[in-house]
Each structure stands twice: as structure tokens, then as C-alpha cells.
Simulated assay, not measured.
Amino acid sequence: MSDHLLALEAFSGRQLQALIDRAIELKGESKAGKRQQQLAGKTVCLLFDKPSTRTRVSFESATYGLDGKVIFMSSKDSQLGRGEPLKDTARVLARYVDGIVVRTFGQEIVEELARYSGVPVINALTDLHHPCQILSDMMTVIEHKGALAPLKVVWIGDGNNMANSWIEAASVLGFSLTLACPEGFDPDGEILKRAQERADKPIVLVRDPAEAIADADVVNVDVWASMGQEEEQEARAKLFAPYQLDKRLLAGAKGDAIVLHCLPAHREEEITEEVLEGPQSVVFDQAENKMHIHKAILEHFVG
């Protein structure tokens, strides 16, 4: 297994499944009140260019829950915001901490940090990938639906970093994935091509959300304008309107299909209040599982 977690395609299905299985075990231990000390004596640096609620708190809670310590730094608190070379930042931080969790813009930033860091670098989000989030999403699916392989997973909306990581996950773990994106808002073409060449099950891109959602076991949506795209919000709202997950569209999925959303959700935009708060929604289980999957990731890469 790689020393760093930058993107899911670098791992085998067995390796990703082991992380998910371990997260489920750690969740059970936590619920049972078992003390977890796998990061005792370890320090993790959270280096965030982008603001965050769930990602920051879940990584901090996971670190403290494993008896580790956390140093949080935003870009304005570090030399990243003042032009220090990334290779210098990586080599210095690696002498102070045992792992670096990065939430930033370009994928090239985490890749360069990993290239020069003497400690593990974990991608907590870039504009291209969101691997930790997808691992927690798949953990949630397994808890509710069992094994991933027999399932049809559907992505509806923008072909963003989440979509890219779902594509990689499908190719590695061997489940069917259908994406419905408006023209001009497709996932990364190279990621899609590599995944389709590697995949055992279909990974399909269509335009019609009703076509995509037919007989789905898992339905996943996200905001229409990601962080840094706020000025596009109004234009995207008009273009993406047919992709809203409402009760009518959801009716095309299987009756026991589950709904995922990584949050924050814009109610009555990409998803209606009725669906988000409805019986098929598992979004708050999904949000909790970020902390448990982060424990498994930190235990493996840092502990």
C-alpha cells in the first residue's frame, strides 16, 4: 500500500476494503466505550487552504479519539500563503509531526507535498479528488446494503471531485456506477477513461438523470457549485434544475435505495427537503462515518 493517500486508484480493492472494514470495527469499539490509543505520542498536522466544518472536526475528533494530538493550520497561518516552496514546507513539517492532512485546491499541491515529505500525506480534498469522503460513503453503503459489488450506484449532478473519486472507487472495488451530468460538466476525462479500462463492471456517463437512476441501489448527489465556484451559482442553478433529486426522480430507483449527500446540502436545489429528511436518506450516518473512516486512515498511515 502507498505511504500516502492521495487518490483511490493507487490502491487495490483489497486494500480499500480493509480500510472500510477496519473503520466499521473501530466504530463498534467506540460505541462500546473501548479506549483507543493507536496514535498515542503521535501528532497530526491539518493543513487547510479551504475552510471546513465536517472534514476538520471529523479529523480532529478521530485523532483525539485515537489519543493523538492535532495542530491545525490554515493557509493564512502558514508560509503556504506567503510563497514558501511546497518542498520546503513538506520537509520541515515532516520533522515536527507524524502525518499531514491537506485540504487544498490543486491536486499537484498534495502530490508535491507527498514527494518531499518524510511522513504520510493524506488528501482531505482537492479540486480533483476527495478520497477520504468516498471511503466514508462506501462504508455507509456497506452498513446499509451489504457488499458493494452487486449494487448499482448512481451519481447525479456536477462531475466534480466527488464524482472523480466515485469513478476510481468503482473501478477498484468492482461495482456498477452510472453518472448523469449536464453537458460541459463531466468528470475528468482521463480519470474516467482509465477507470473504464480497468473496471469489471460498467462505469457509464449519461445526460438523463431518469435514465441513470433506473433501478439504482444507491443515489448520490452533491452541491451544484463547489467551493470556489460561488460566482457560477445562479447560472448553474438554471442548468442543473432537471438534475434535482426530488421524490419524483427518486421513484425511479429501487424502493429500498438509499440516498447519500456529503453535506452541506442546499435544500430545494440539488435535493429537496422531502428527500433529504425522508426515510431513504442516510446522510447523517454518512456524516458520522467520516470520523470513523478517518480513524482507520490515521491508524494505518500514521499509527
Rank of each mutant, 00 (worst) to 15 (best):
Lys27Trp: 03
Gln36Thr: 09
Val44Asn: 10
Leu113Thr: 00
Glu111Asp: 06
Glu108Cys: 00
Thr43Trp: 06
Arg95Asp: 07
Arg54Val: 04
Val70Ile: 14
Val101Gly: 08
Leu66Ala: 13
Arg91Trp: 04
Asp98Phe: 00
Arg54Gly: 02
Phe48Asn: 07
Glu60Ser: 05
Thr43Lys: 08
Leu47Pro: 12
Leu66Asn: 10
Glu60Lys: 00
Gln79Glu: 14
Gly118Arg: 10
Leu26Thr: 06
Tyr116Trp: 02
Ser52Thr: 07
Thr53Pro: 01
Val110Pro: 11
Val119Gly: 05
Tyr96Phe: 12
Gly106Val: 06
Cys45Ser: 13
Thr55Leu: 12
Asn123Leu: 09
Ile109Thr: 15
Gly28Gln: 12
Glu112Val: 01
Arg115Asn: 03
Lys27Asp: 01
Glu108Lys: 07
Lys42Gln: 11
Arg103Asn: 10
Asp77Gln: 14
Lys34Ile: 14
Gly33Arg: 01
Asp67Trp: 07
Lys76Ile: 11
Val101Asp: 12
Pro51Asp: 15
Ser78Gln: 09
Arg56Gln: 09
Phe105Ser: 10
Lys31Gln: 11
Gly106Gln: 06
Ser52His: 04
Glu108Tyr: 00
Ala62Gly: 08
Glu29Met: 15
Lys34Gly: 03
Val110Lys: 02
Gly106His: 03
Asp88Glu: 13
Ala40Lys: 13
Thr63Cys: 14
Val57Pro: 14
Thr104Met: 04
Val70Phe: 08
Asp127Met: 02
Gly83Glu: 02
Arg115Ala: 10
Leu86Lys: 05
Lys50His: 03
Leu47Ile: 10
Asp49Glu: 15
Ala90Ile: 08
Arg103Trp: 00
Thr104Leu: 11
Val44Leu: 15
Arg103Tyr: 01
Pro85Trp: 01
Ala32Thr: 00
Leu86Met: 08
Glu84Tyr: 03
Gly83Met: 01
Asp98Ile: 00
Ser75Gln: 11
Ser74Leu: 04
Arg95Pro: 03
Lys50Tyr: 03
Pro85Met: 09
Gly99Met: 11
Gln36Ala: 08
Val101Gln: 08
Leu113Lys: 04
Arg82Gly: 07
Thr43Tyr: 03
Lys87Asn: 12
Val97His: 05
Asp88Lys: 11
Pro51Gln: 15
Leu125Cys: 14
Asp88Phe: 10
Leu39Gln: 08
Val102Leu: 10
Val119His: 00
Leu26Lys: 05
Leu39Ile: 07
Val70Met: 06
Arg115Ile: 01
Glu84Arg: 04
Gly99Tyr: 05
Leu86Phe: 02
Gln37Lys: 14
Ser75Phe: 12
Val92Leu: 07
Val57Gln: 12
Ile122Gly: 15
Tyr96Lys: 10
Gln38Ala: 15
Glu84Asp: 08
Ser61Lys: 14
Gly65Ile: 07
Ile100Gly: 02
Gln107Leu: 09
Gln79Asn: 13
Ser74Pro: 09
Gly99Asp: 01
Ser58Gly: 11
Thr53Asn: 14
Gly65Glu: 12
Gln38Glu: 15
Gly118Asn: 15
Asp127Tyr: 05
Pro85Ile: 01
Val44Gly: 11
